[in-house]
Amino acid sequence: MWLGLYMDRFSEMEAFATVVDRGGFTDAARKLGLSKSAVSKHVSALEARLGARLLNRTTRRVSPTEIGLAYYDRARRVLCEAGAADALVTSMQSVPSGLLRVSVATDFGVNHLSPVLGQFMAEFPDIKVDMVLDNRYAELISEGFDMAVRIGEMSDSSLRARKVAETRLRMIASPDYLGRVGRPQRIDDLKDHRLLHYSNQSSGNVWRVTDRLANAGRSALPGG
């Protein structure tokens, strides 16, 4: 209800100001893309709501009254501010600008993003990039990040995500370690081995491994 009332008041204000600018209802209607009767109704509704006559109407011309001229000055400022607000949004969409805060893992940021960051900033000079290199999983919304680069599976989230590349994970061990405890041949063999765990991994304190050759399901192994 309040939104509809505000829109009616804005339409009335715009119709009145355009009539004053154009010096008549016919030209104002042409400017606004409305019928002459619609513009007249808007102005009449405005005068009725304010309880004051804003326009002097004759068969040959339309001019603002003293009260109407005072109201016009204020109304035109409001309309100009609204137009400036619309133009600001349009310009920000057509030419990207502002601060872009990005959360990214340290190694990935240094090895992959840093080399292309200069080219990005040259192409979009109005964007200021704040790239935070951190191996923890930051909370994007609460910490004020616009985007993040993550490696691994996307957890259930209301955030939008896009796959940009694939990476391979390798299971490695030192020759000395394998010489002492033997080389694992199957997933189940890993239960008898000491596993190093990366504490910032999104999967938690587990290793997730899939045996594709045996068509086995995913196994969760405790890090040790």
Rank of each mutant, 00 (worst) to 15 (best):
A84L: 15
T106W: 04
R218L: 13
G23H: 01
D192M: 04
G118K: 06
T65L: 07
S94V: 15
G68K: 04
F120Q: 03
N205M: 06
M171E: 03
M147V: 14
R218H: 03
F108K: 10
S11Q: 15
G118N: 12
Y198R: 08
S97D: 05
M131L: 15
E123W: 03
A85G: 03
I127W: 01
N135D: 15
S142M: 05
S94P: 02
T26A: 11
E123S: 12
A173D: 08
Y137W: 00
G109L: 12
R194F: 12
V104N: 02
A105Y: 01
K41T: 12
G204K: 07
V110R: 14
A214K: 10
Y72A: 07
G24W: 01
R150F: 03
P64L: 08
D73F: 04
G51R: 06
E166S: 11
D21Q: 12
L117D: 07
K31E: 14
A52R: 12
S63Q: 05
P222T: 09
L190D: 11
N111W: 01
S63N: 01
E139L: 06
E12T: 02
T18S: 07
F10V: 14
E47M: 03
D73H: 06
R74Q: 11
R9N: 09
A82F: 09
R180K: 15
R136N: 07
S203Q: 14
M13Y: 00
A52G: 00
A45P: 01
Y198Q: 06
K191Q: 12
T106H: 07
K36D: 11
L55S: 06
Q201M: 11
Q119M: 13
S142L: 04
K41P: 00
N111R: 14
I127T: 05
R136I: 13
V43R: 02
G179V: 02
G224D: 12
N215F: 09
G83H: 02
L221H: 07
A216P: 00
